[in-house]
Design a protein around this nucleic acid. Structure first.
Length: 497
RNA sequence: GCUCCGGUAGUGUAGCCCGGCCAAUCAUGCCGGCCUUUCGAGCCGGCGACUCGGGUUCGAAUCCCGACCGGAGCACCA
């Protein structure tokens, strides 16, 4: 009884400790949004925004809006619209509503006109360089003092006459503001790049579209990275000019992720150049690459949840993700032997050997695999991993796991001659012998393991012929991997130790 | 340079708003032990931190000031 109670309070405490800090000023329904740019599929960096927004929405019983921000036609990658949906489904993020900004251009035009009419915005024909100079000198250009009527006409000419770069709409925030970035920043521009979804040439800039949408869609809380802090201040001007109430903003710090490629534009270049096989190349930090390696979305979610919403910058801990994934995958992954960079060992004086070994040590009901050797001319051939070969010494004693003990007679370059010693594990333990995994040479299955750093090739045990694509396995003393291609040759994607 | 943030164990995180219950949480890592067979899985146990210096206070990880360190933004991208 006492034990049960203490166990219970421990669980409760654990749960509470894992919770995110509450959202500020919650009144009524919580509406949040996840707003990626459809320039490619989602990666680990997006996962944080998606998971955290989703977690808060679930916690408060609110709604999550997926907003595809495709107002820069040059950066749109058409397949991304669908890929983002797939990735979110995989992540278990519940989207209540999807909006695509390119379908809402009229909304932005209407609001831009309204600001122009009210004298809060004007069409500016300065070049970017010219304006930058004026901005730093805190001087207004000639266009700033134009009347609303004339500005409206100029605005219409942006749709017909002006070319890209010839005119923008600027918000009249003030040319004497302390922060140069705030001074009359642009809200609409012309882009002549072809948009895959709409025919248009005038597009809103992010800070305008975001503010208008967040307000119109009823967003109550915006959770995003702190690289948007300046944008929040810009967006505050839009809210002020319209007389709208601002949502609550929470900015989390940068998440440094090492070891995988994340930049969508660089990945795209890499794919085009043939350096990556595709968006799910195991060297990438895309969610589809992680899924291909056998990472479960629950592990990714948990890693993101405990990274949290702190504003200080942090580095992503792969080890933590590995540990979370291992917890999920360990019970389901059957065990097999795989030797990387194989080296042949000839074992002399071996009697016929055959043994049934469990597919998983903790679950006998899952069945077994057979390890067997038929000596030819009194000797049998097995493969061991190069890394184990290197630690072998002549006269040494090792145990082939789940098999038997051998003595090393001769160690040549890439070849070992050994002699069968005994069958019993106890003998190996008594001698503190190393236990190494191995593969019978006769029916060895060629295996390639794709890893972020490269690939390992070698042989797997015969039972591997029975695995199916998408199975999660543990190659003993090597690591967890997902079977990518099954059959006579196996391709696996490495997850983690 | 200007503007704005942040600094808790090896790593990530809780606590900081509303000072005491914090010789500081949880996870991971590391070390040790266990396991009819993973020096690389699993189980059990242990180790390990409030950046520094002042101040306020009976009392500070928590409030204030400074230093140091780190980061973000300063696009007709998002």
């Amino acid at each position: 009884m006492e034990r049960a109670l203490s166990g219970y309070s421990f669980e409760v405490r654990r749960e509470r400790k894992r919770e995110l800090p509450p959202l500020p000023r919650v009144a009524g329904e919580v509406v949040m949004r996840f707003a990626p740019n459809p320039s490619g599929p989602l990666h680990l960096g997006h996962a944080r925004a998606a998971v955290l927004n989703d977690a808060y929405v679930r916690r408060y019983g609110g709604r999550l809006i997926l907003r595809l921000e495709d107002t820069d036609p040059a950066r749109v990658y058409p397949p991304a619209y669908e890929m983002i949906h797939e990735d979110l489904r995989w992540l278990g993020v519940r989207v209540h509503e999807t909006v695509v900004q390119s379908s809402r251009l009229e909304v932005y035009y209407r609001h831009a006109r309204e600001l122009i009419e009210k004298g809060h915005a004007y069409v500016c024909q300065c070049s970017a360089e010219e304006f930058q100079r004026l901005k730093l000198e805190m001087r207004a250009c000639e266009h700033r003092s134009r009347g609303a009527e004339e500005n409206l006409e100029e605005f219409e000419r942006m749709f017909t006459e002006y070319r890209e770069g010839e005119a923008v709409v600027r918000l009249k925030t003030g040319m004497d503001l302390r922060d140069p970035a705030m001074r009359d920043f642009p809200i609409m521009r012309i882009s002549e790049a072809r948009h895959p979804r709409v025919e248009a040439r005038v597009y809103p800039l992010m800070n305008f579209a975001v503010a208008v949408d967040d307000h119109l869609l009823g967003v109550t809380h915006v959770l995003r990275g702190k690289d948007h802090i300046v944008n929040t201040r810009k967006q505050a001007y839009v809210y002020r000019f319209f007389g709208w109430q601002m949502p609550e903003f929470i900015h989390y710090g940068r998440l440094k992720i090492e070891g995988v490629a994340l930049s969508t534009s660089k990945i795209r270049e890499g794919i085009d150049a043939g350096r990556y096989a595709g968006w799910d190349d195991v060297a990438l930090g895309t969610l589809r690459a992680l899924a291909r390696r056998g990472f479960r979305s629950e592990a990714v979610r948990r890693a993101m949840l405990d990274v949290g919403v702190k504003q200080s910058d942090i580095s992503f801990s792969w080890k933590n993700l590995f540990a979370y994934n291992r917890e999920i995958v360990e019970p389901i992954a059957n065990r097999y032997f795989f030797v990387a960079s194989p080296v042949e060992v000839v074992v002399e004086a071996l009697p016929e050997f055959s043994r049934e070994v469990r597919l998983h040590p903790d679950y006998p009901e899952r069945g077994s695999r057979r390890l067997e050797l038929k000596p030819e001319g009194g000797a049998a051939r097995v493969f061991i991993a190069r890394s184990d070969f290197e630690r072998l010494e002549e006269g040494g004693f090792v145990r082939l796991m789940e098999g038997f003990n051998i003595e090393v007679l001769e160690k040549g370059e890439g070849r070992v001659k050994a002699r069968f010693h005994s069958l019993e594990l106890e003998e190996a333990k008594r001698r503190r012998a190393r236990l190494i995994h191995w593969v019978p040479a006769q029916q060895a299955v060629p295996v390639t393991v794709l890893k972020p750093e490269g690939r390992d090739t070698g042989y797997g045990e015969p039972a591997l012929r029975r695995v199916k694509a998408d199975d999660m396995v543990q190659f003993e003393r090597y690591g967890f991997a997902r079977i990518d291609e099954a059959g006579k040759r196996i391709v696996a994607c490495y997850a983690h130790p």
